[in-house]
Design a protein around this nucleic acid. Structure first.
Lengths: 229, 229
DNA sequence: ACATGTCAAGAGCAGTGCTCTCGTCTGCGA
DNA sequence: TCGCAGACGAGAGCACTGCTCTTGACATGT
């Protein structure tokens, strides 16, 4: 028992605050998240909350990290290494969409417009990598299992992806050149766009069956990456 | 002169309020837009503004419509009917991106997370169509000029686009089936995703040259749609 | 010249983030 | 076992927000 009773109580109450804030976030959204409302729900004075959370921005950061972790876990759960590469990619994409539909306000916090006056600190980028890494793993496994199409016919185009993304996008492999990595980044940000467009209401009236439409589209994106299936 | 001096003064002041609010929006973002700050900047009492704008939400709606119109105009300006279909698509996409970079907070209002407690009224959807219609026109012109690839080999897949989008996506033409329309919708929402990802900081460290990267990616999307060039 | 009604302003309500102070109480070291 | 530093919760208060209501001045149309 390395921590005292006070420390335990402190951690428990801090966790309570973050959990209550998550509930608030799910109900009213990030920009309307109120520290006073969290305090009210916990039966605390608003000033007491500041003993545990230094500021509203810090609370947002915690929710941001928790959101990235939650999304990353959902993506990992949706992955099934036994499937063909293309089907794996589609399954992970569907997992991401399902999480977004279940947590729309959290998705807005992660990938929507930034909260005014708030800049995400550097700690959040590692958490943000978790879901992207799942796609990267599918890509890497496909390369090693031969489930990735060869070099595109016009692969002489510049690819323009930074060297930092190599580890997260499947690692080093002869089949994984910058051209296919650029395609993967395109597929990833396209998926972001599809989910956001659906969630933010930009596809109402455009599609007849949102889920089937999404599945078909991410399948096209998997083809664009060159995944076999 | 059908309107009295009072009516003219009223319209001028209303326009001043909206213009000042646009400035505020550009500076601090939509969620932090303050009616009182607008009033201060105009030398008015905060209560006086409510004589011209019924509520903050109504002001947001006006800014939303103005934003869609501004983006649509930028897309139209970027279009050049003399180019090959693929180059036209890329040019319009680049125009959209350039507008977004010049008006980041307005882009966030249009395509980012919705402002809490605010639901966009139906009037905004027609304005939102304007930029999409430019892409639709490029698609339609390509079909009529023969610059659109034929039916995809596996076009037996369901396409799942609603019938309402046909007019805006090039109209009726034998080469424009629901499969190619679905690809166009995918390319459009992918472009949304690319721009949002860049603007909201999700591509920092991923690409080495944002503009060249974007140009290359929307070129891939144009290929996916089947535009020749 | 007068009545109508539009106008700007101010006070006020309920809410926000955040700070400071003031008693209380806990837990650690002597 | 005692005493005290430090943590704790509560409350008041500041500056800000959107919005409503009243009040008094002014311009407009008859």
């Amino acid at each position: 028992m390395v921590q005292t009773a006070r420390e335990r109580a402190r951690e428990a109450l801090t966790a309570d605050i973050v959990e209550t804030a998550r509930g608030q976030l799910a109900e009213v959204g990030a920009a309307a998240l109120s520290l006073r409302a969290v305090a009210r729900e916990l039966g605390l004075a608003s000033s007491a909350v500041y003993r545990y959370v230094p500021s509203r921005d810090d609370l947002l950061t915690r929710l941001l990290v928790a959101g990235y972790e939650s999304l990353g876990a959902a993506a990992e759960d949706a992955d099934d290494p036994g499937l063909a590469p293309r089907d794996r990619w589609v399954a992970v994409s569907r997992g991401v969409r399902a999480w977004a539909l279940a947590h729309p306000h959290e998705w807005g916090l992660l990938y929507g417009s930034p909260v005014p006056g708030y800049a995400a600190p550097q700690d959040t980028v590692v958490a943000a990598m978790r879901s992207a890494a799942v796609f990267g793993r599918v890509l890497g496994d496909a390369a090693y299992s031969g489930g990735l199409a060869g070099r595109a016919p016009n692969a002489d185009r510049t690819a323009l992806v930074g060297p930092d993304v190599t580890p997260v996008l499947g690692g080093e492999h002869p089949a994984l050149d910058d051209d296919v990595r650029a395609r993967a980044v395109l597929a990833w940000s396209s998926t972001l766009g599809l989910v956001s467009a659906e969630l933010f209401g930009h596809l109402v009236g455009v599609t007849t069956d949102q889920e089937a439409f999404f599945t078909e589209q991410v399948g096209r994106l998997a083809d664009l990456v060159g995944l076999a299936g």
